[in-house]
Simulated scan of single mutants.
Amino acid sequence: MLELATGSGLAMAAGVNAWIPLLLLGLLSRFSDLLSLPAGWQWLENPWVMVILGVLLVVEIVADKIPALDSVNDVLQTVIRPTAGGIAFGAGSASETVTVSDPQAFFEGGEWITVTVGVVLALVVHAAKAGGRVITNAVSGGTAAPVMSTVEDAAAVGVSFLGITLPFLMIPVLILFAIGLILIVRGVRKHRRLKQIDEAYGTA
């Protein structure tokens, strides 16, 4: 089941930043022994693909750190991040890593299943990220956006590496994420209630 943990880590990272796990997969497969992409996903290590991913990553990093623009970026990424999550999960779970020597034995013939799982997982993480950013922007007036974005980028890199090198540690990460998701949902609901109360008193 380590393949599932590897794919989960990469898909979660894609839910935060679409390009980090994809670029990391390409770089590690091409320039290290930590990971070897299967034939169907080796396009990720193509130099031109990695250059394009790198450019998109820079654009994403900059846009996500500008107040107001970060929320617009989250809306635009609603399709991109889940798609990247599906690709990352499919490629990562089917790759040979330092901890997984025969991934195809686990996922043989079910590529669409892994991609679907990755899409769903990345979409959930993306929704949590976007919801959390709404709360922090409202509380800080947008000034916390650069800090939050930097932390999120670092987390995406860390979770990606964790999924590839120490996938068994993804279990507690998934548990912590579930707890955090519950807290974010509660926070968003509380923020909406307070906003509705303010609007009610403002019009009274």
Score class of each variant (00 low, 15 high):
residue 94 A to M: 08
residue 149 S to H: 08
residue 193 R to Q: 11
residue 56 L to S: 09
residue 199 E to G: 14
residue 28 L to P: 12
residue 155 A to V: 14
residue 171 I to F: 09
residue 43 W to N: 06
residue 178 A to V: 01
residue 76 L to V: 14
residue 178 A to C: 06
residue 19 W to T: 09
residue 203 T to F: 11
residue 147 V to W: 15
residue 146 P to W: 05
residue 112 W to C: 02
residue 93 S to M: 06
residue 4 L to P: 13
residue 11 A to C: 02
residue 100 V to M: 10
residue 13 A to R: 00
residue 48 W to Q: 07
residue 33 D to K: 15
residue 6 T to M: 11
residue 136 T to Q: 04
residue 128 A to R: 07
residue 107 F to W: 10
residue 184 I to H: 01
residue 42 Q to L: 07
residue 201 Y to T: 13
residue 77 Q to P: 10
residue 100 V to G: 07
residue 68 A to C: 11
residue 54 G to S: 07
residue 57 L to I: 06
residue 8 S to C: 03
residue 72 V to L: 15
residue 116 T to V: 15
residue 168 F to N: 11
residue 163 G to V: 07
residue 68 A to L: 11
residue 57 L to P: 01
residue 51 V to F: 10
residue 158 G to Y: 11
residue 103 P to T: 09
residue 133 R to T: 10
residue 26 G to I: 13
residue 193 R to Y: 13
residue 173 V to M: 05
residue 178 A to W: 03
residue 80 I to T: 10
residue 86 G to Q: 02
residue 171 I to K: 04
residue 123 L to P: 02
residue 81 R to W: 06
residue 197 I to Q: 04
residue 10 L to F: 07
residue 168 F to S: 13
residue 176 L to C: 06
residue 121 L to P: 00
residue 143 T to L: 15
residue 72 V to N: 07
residue 135 I to D: 04
residue 35 L to Y: 14
residue 16 V to H: 00
residue 189 R to S: 12
residue 157 V to E: 00
residue 19 W to D: 09
residue 2 L to E: 15
residue 196 Q to K: 09
residue 148 M to G: 02
residue 78 T to W: 03
residue 20 I to N: 01
residue 70 D to P: 00
residue 4 L to C: 14
residue 184 I to Y: 01
residue 150 T to Y: 12
residue 118 G to E: 10
residue 175 I to T: 07
residue 76 L to K: 10
residue 125 V to H: 06
residue 100 V to F: 05
residue 67 P to S: 03
residue 166 L to R: 15
residue 129 K to R: 05
residue 36 S to W: 01
residue 62 V to G: 01
residue 98 V to R: 15
residue 14 A to F: 03
residue 93 S to A: 12
residue 6 T to K: 15
residue 143 T to G: 05
residue 79 V to T: 13
residue 47 P to I: 01
residue 77 Q to I: 05
residue 149 S to T: 06
residue 126 H to I: 04
residue 101 S to T: 12
residue 185 V to A: 13
residue 108 E to M: 13
residue 22 L to E: 00
residue 11 A to G: 07
residue 29 S to G: 01
residue 125 V to W: 10
residue 113 I to C: 05
residue 77 Q to G: 12
residue 178 A to I: 02
residue 142 G to A: 08
residue 104 Q to N: 07
residue 39 A to N: 05
residue 130 A to R: 08
residue 36 S to N: 00
residue 2 L to Y: 14
residue 104 Q to C: 09
residue 201 Y to F: 14
residue 146 P to H: 03
residue 106 F to L: 15
residue 140 S to L: 06
residue 109 G to I: 11
residue 141 G to A: 05
residue 96 E to R: 13
residue 85 G to D: 08
residue 128 A to E: 02
residue 62 V to K: 00
residue 191 H to R: 12
residue 15 G to E: 02
residue 38 P to I: 03
residue 165 T to C: 11
residue 4 L to A: 14
residue 172 P to A: 05
residue 145 A to Y: 00
residue 105 A to T: 14
residue 152 E to T: 13
residue 72 V to A: 13
residue 125 V to G: 02
residue 180 G to A: 08
residue 138 A to I: 09
residue 70 D to H: 05
